[in-house]
Each structure stands twice: as structure tokens, then as C-alpha cells.
Design a binder for these strands. Sequence first.
DNA 1: CCGATCCGCTGACAAATGTCATCGGGCAGG
DNA 2: CCTGCCCGATGACATTTGTCAGCGGATCGG
Lengths: 205, 205
Amino acid sequence: MTDSPIRVLLADDEVLLREAVMALLSLEDGIEIVGTAQDGRDAVALVARTRPDVAVLDLEMPRMDGVEAATAIRAAAPGTRVVLLTRHARPAILRRALNAGVSAFVTKATSVKELPSILRQVSRGGRYVDGTVAAAALSESDCPITNREIDVLRESLDGATVRVIAERTHLAPGTVRNYASTAMAKLGAATRVEAARIAWREGWI
Amino acid sequence: MTDSPIRVLLADDEVLLREAVMALLSLEDGIEIVGTAQDGRDAVALVARTRPDVAVLDLEMPRMDGVEAATAIRAAAPGTRVVLLTRHARPAILRRALNAGVSAFVTKATSVKELPSILRQVSRGGRYVDGTVAAAALSESDCPITNREIDVLRESLDGATVRVIAERTHLAPGTVRNYASTAMAKLGAATRVEAARIAWREGWI
DNA sequence: CCGATCCGCTGACAAATGTCATCGGGCAGG
DNA sequence: CCTGCCCGATGACATTTGTCAGCGGATCGG
């Protein structure tokens, strides 16, 4: 069959990575870069105008992160498939991404050489999930902590006071301490913050 | 003069960025990539073996960060100039880097197109500092906290207990609390951890 | 030499934190 | 229906943490 080139949009806030990847993809046969953006909001706007076949979005971007942008793009331009690019391979993010209608989940530990085939696969309607992340998500080192414990730990990450966490979660201070305590016990941490960082590292919050 | 190619080593833990930049630099006339590494330790070892003209080091790498690697490289291979690559443009890091004998300080917001000329400049013995970082460093939002306060805050980042911080810093627990307290006052934080995160954000630890 | 400043430590005290027992309501599964 | 689990909360308790005052020693600039 004759290939009409795959039209790709690339969004990443790191100029170096964005330009380098863009240059390499441009060299590839059958792939055409139709635009680049440096944050999620610009990416959504640019997708609306250029209607690319595939939008490659970094997860961590200013103003609007990759998952939010993916949600907006899926709603505004259903014909555009989304590839999410991320630095840290965390199962929780993968779940968020798949719920947002992302077609591929790629980490920055992926070789550039694999990108073109992933883009082609996705543009044909296929899906792709980074192997190590998939394994981690399936091996299901089951998140042992409960939803409210997650809420509390998330608000604990920056070292906030129990009182502040209570306000932010609309809970009583005592309740916050209870959830923090049970989470700490489950995670073997001596402190709210340590528990929060463990949960973060494991991709649970 | 006839150019013998500049021999470059590239160290970054992100495969995607490393390969993409490597590929583009390889296309450049007069630049030869003689090796890549994915952490600081490997980079130091590889520099010792291959003696490149320039080593491009990412700041954030596992096992040994870019500045530590730069120090080791300057000691072991004085003929190799070091270019430090960083995601976040923070004045404190710039100072650390320059003290470590780094020849160039480049952020990942730099265009790939500028890299070759920076590498050439450095290999000729020149220096280069990213403009925005230099400006920020000169505007000198002077770090208000003292050295031991920095030590304590750095160990506070992961939510460790005073007892643990005391052990890690070889200080008495009371002393740790005092330094934490003064730092918190200076930074307007309600918690050790919050102070630590503020100091981190500002590039002071 | 004399402050000034940072260092490291101690002791004391109020407040915050972590732990435990316990309660009631809601909701799912057997 | 009963059991179990999560939710949200309270009260009591020991520990930890943050704050303050003060101690000697080192170092540096005037």
C-alpha cells in the first residue's frame, strides 16, 4: 500500500529533547512533524488547528500536564491518537493515562529507534505500553493503602501540618492523623512524609 | 587549520534524550561521539578509558550526580573539559558546577542547534554559561541559610526523624532541632520538611 | 584585643504528632 | 441477616518536634 505520511505533533517543555526527537523523526520515512508545543495548553490548541494523526505528549509540562491534555484532545479531536511520554515509569500514571484514552505509554528510557514503529502502530489504531511499566502494573505490587490514606499522603508530600492537611482534605485533624498512622504502619515509615515519599516512589499517589 | 574531530562523551540517564542528542551530534562535522554512559560512575570510568576532549554530563543521574562526576573527571583527566547539562536552571547549582571546574553550563531549554558550537568553544578552552541562569545568579537572590542549616535541611527532605538526621549529620538531636528551627524561621516554613522543600526549590540545597 | 558570628551543645517547655481504643454509619459479599 | 471493611470522628496518652535561653569555643575583621 502507499503510505501517506503520518502527521505527528510533539509536545515537551524541554527544548533539547523536543528538537532532537523532532529532528530524528523528521528524518524517518513516512513521518511528518506538523507542529511542536512546549506545554499542554498549546498542544491542545495546536491539535485543534492541525488535526495530526498522532500527538506525542510529555507527562510533565507546565500549565497543563500530559494526561489532562490527552483528555482534552480525545474530546476535541477523536481522530488524533495520543502517545504519552514520561520520565518516571509509574503504574498509577499508566492507569490514569489509559483512562484518559491514551493509545501508547512510552518512557524516556525507550530507544529513539523504537519510536517510529510505535507511532506507526498507534496511527493504525494499535496500542502500545512500555514493557517494564506494564510488568510493574501487572505484577500488581498491590497498593496496600486505602483511598483516603492516599489523599492524606498526597497532601503530606510537601511537609504540611496536620491542620493544613485537614483543611485541604476537609477532614478532622484526628482523622488525618489516623489515616497517616495506618498508612505509615502499612508502609513501614516513621513519619507521614516518609510514608508519602515511599508511596510516591511506588507510584501509588 | 585542519580539524581533528572533537571527541565527545555523553552521559544522561534518559535513553531517549541521550540517543537523540548523540545521533544529532554524530551528524555534525568535526564531532565524534566516543562513548555514552547512563550514570555518573560509568561516565567517570569511561572518561578514564577513552580520554575524550569533552564530557557532556547530565546533572541528575543515579549513583553519582553530574557535579560529583565532574569533580572526579577534573581530577583524573584534566585534559577533558566538562559540559554540565541540567533540567532546572538554578543559581546554586551553577556555583557548585563552576567550583567543580565545569567549562560550560547548559540547560535542557537550549536548542540542539547551539550544542555543536558550545562544544567547539569548550574544546578550544573556552567557557559557556546559559544566559538565563547567569542572569539569575547575578541577580543574586542570596541564600539566607547557613551551611549547617543546609546540611540539616538536606537530610530533612525525605521526612526523616530528628534522631535519624542527627545520626546522618553527626550532630546532637537538639542541635538538629535548633538548626531546623532557625532555617524554618528564615524561610517562613511551619515544618522542617516544608523549609527543606522551599530551600530545594530555590536551589539552596 | 574586642565584638560579631557561626558552630555545637544542653535544658526546659508548649505544641504537634503518632498510637491506640472506640464509636456509628454505609456498603458489599456470603 | 450477619460479617467485614472502609469511612469519619473522638478522646487519651506518650513521644516527637519546634521554640527559646544560654553555655563554651573557634574564627574573622576592625
